[in-house]
Design a protein around this nucleic acid. Sequence first.
DNA 1: GATAATACATAGGAATTCGATGTATTGGAT
DNA 2: ATCCAATACATCGAATTCCTATGTATTATC
Lengths: 111, 111
Amino acid sequence: MDTELLKGTLSLLILSLLSRQSMYGYEIASTVHRDTDGTFTWREGSLYPNLHKLEADGLIAGAWEEKETGRKRRYYRITKEGRAALKSKLQSWSELCAAVNRILEKSHGQA
Amino acid sequence: MDTELLKGTLSLLILSLLSRQSMYGYEIASTVHRDTDGTFTWREGSLYPNLHKLEADGLIAGAWEEKETGRKRRYYRITKEGRAALKSKLQSWSELCAAVNRILEKSHGQA
DNA sequence: GATAATACATAGGAATTCGATGTATTGGAT
DNA sequence: ATCCAATACATCGAATTCCTATGTATTATC
């Protein structure tokens, strides 16, 4: 399996969020923070380099947009390659969960 | 939450296995490999340094045992501190799963 | 007797994430 | 009107984790 996933929930969640709608960096971070009740609190030092890497890999595409207010944001959308990568990462994630839980269940009574 | 867990399923699973019975390194690796149908294939370069670290942190304790055959193995048992750490890691793991799945469900139909 | 499997170990490197720091704009409070 | 918090982007260096490669030695199998 893709061992990258052992650490890489960040890419998985970014791709998952963008598969629904385009978002900009700060929005992604605050959405994840809110929706997980603070379980995930990505710092800028984690988020932006990861976005740049995903873009360099062609999984997402960014474009600057200037609102009427003057605030500039970089909106990201998922690419075709990104959707394929997401599908594969979803598969890896569920395999990882299943494997871990299988071990845990054998040792304890719970999942 | 303990962000270490994003990557650290290794320590979690080692502690979980040892909470049932004492085991030696090679046995841990092959057990996990077998029980997860090959999803996890830890290499020596991952396993042994991790065992050493867990021992240095006082979460497990190792002792050499020489079988009648002459083969020497280092058996590890979980310590009291190890059990406390395991409890905390189990909690973190279930939080992580819940948080990830909550995001995934919002974006797709599945978990 | 040779080879594969068992059983341990470490060194070096690749990849990921965090902490710290920096710049600039916008909105609200005093 | 001015200050401060929040927004919005960015990068550098450090810490951590894990893998590849390599090494040693013993036991079992052919």
